[in-house]
């Protein structure tokens, strides 16, 4: 299912946000801040950019590597709306017996391209996919969502070296640059700036955008396609907890589920936002 207008993509991002709140609230645990900030990126990837067909799983398709697996409430929601499984199942998230594991698992869903949760593995896995597609002369592309916290891990930088060495221009990574991790802001826990300069020094094509701005996401992905001979890193500055006033920019919401009354407040804020988008 393709959504062609910014408005439709914004409405999808809003629906993803509401799902995230319902899911972590039902599970009574999980990670809301990260995926709330990534909602526009998930919306654009699954409903505009990536080529895939849930009805036709045999068909060759683009690869989606979620490296920061803890934000899966958002990607599960996008996958449900895209038709991989019924949206009702979202509320089984993190519960015993559900395929919607606390961190995404290839064991439970064949359309999930990598099991994740342990940070710092996705970019390397994405390199492997991209190298294989290249070997087989295939046109599909690899999309990797990776977090800023994950850039503490040496393995992420090992993958950055590899991708540049092999000129994996069929790989585009999107970094959730939300400036938070568990114990505080990224710059307090382990300073990363300037991340743009670091990636440039690693010989990547670097594009900086506002990761909550749909036209900017679309245009960065287009620029990535046009870039030959280098992998692309889109540094997407996002607002963690976006759309829920009391969660925004507060690292304490990295991995805490809202209580019922807080969830209700979040959902009413998101419903008001939805009305606004509809009227635009």
């Amino acid at each position: 299912m393709k959504l062609n207008s910014t408005k439709e993509l914004a409405l999808m991002a809003n629906a993803i946000r509401a799902d995230i709140i319902r899911m972590v609230n039902a599970a009574k645990c999980g990670h809301p801040a990260g995926p709330l900030g990534l909602a526009e990126i998930f919306s654009v990837l699954f409903f505009s950019e990536m080529d895939f067909d849930p009805k036709n799983p045999q068909k060759e398709r683009d690869i989606f590597v979620l490296s920061n697996g803890h934000v899966c409430a958002g990607s599960y929601s996008a996958m449900a709306h895209a038709g991989y499984f019924p949206p009702e199942d979202l509320l089984t998230f993190r519960k015993f017996g559900s395929p919607l594991q606390g961190h995404p698992s290839r064991k439970y869903f064949p359309f999930i391209d990598n099991s994740s949760g342990p940070l710092g593995e996705g970019l390397g896995i994405a390199c492997g996919y991209a190298a294989a597609l290249r070997l087989d002369n295939k046109p599909q592309r690899v999309y990797c969502v990776v977090s800023d916290g994950e850039h503490d891990e040496g393995s992420t930088w090992e993958a950055a070296l590899f991708a540049a060495k092999y000129k994996l221009d069929n790989l585009v990574a999107i970094m959730d640059r939300n400036y938070i991790q568990i114990d505080g802001t990224t710059e307090d826990v382990m300073p990363l700036d300037s991340i743009e300069e670091k990636y440039r020094a690693f010989n990547w094509n670097v594009i900086s955008i506002d990761g909550n701005d749909i036209p900017q996401i679309l245009s960065a992905l287009k620029q990535a396609k046009d870039c030959k001979g280098k992998p692309t890193m889109i540094i997407a500055k996002t607002t963690p907890g976006k759309g829920v006033s009391y969660m925004e920019k507060n690292y304490k919401w990295h991995g805490v589920a809202p209580k019922d009354e807080d969830a209700a407040k979040a959902l009413s804020e998101l419903a008001a936002e939805r009305k606004k988008i509809e009227q635009e």
Binding site: G120, G149, D152, E153, G154, Q181, I182, D183, V189, M190
Partner: peptide
């Protein structure tokens, strides 16, 4: 610790002895 001070309960130590506490970031190796 590696970005898990409270989860692993070393935040008690960190609050009392900030000089002797090292926040390593997510860098277990």
């Amino acid at each position: 610790t590696a970005d898990l001070a409270e989860s692993v309960r070393v935040h008690y130590f960190a609050e009392k002895f900030p000089q002797r506490f090292f926040q390593c970031g997510i860098c277990e190796q």
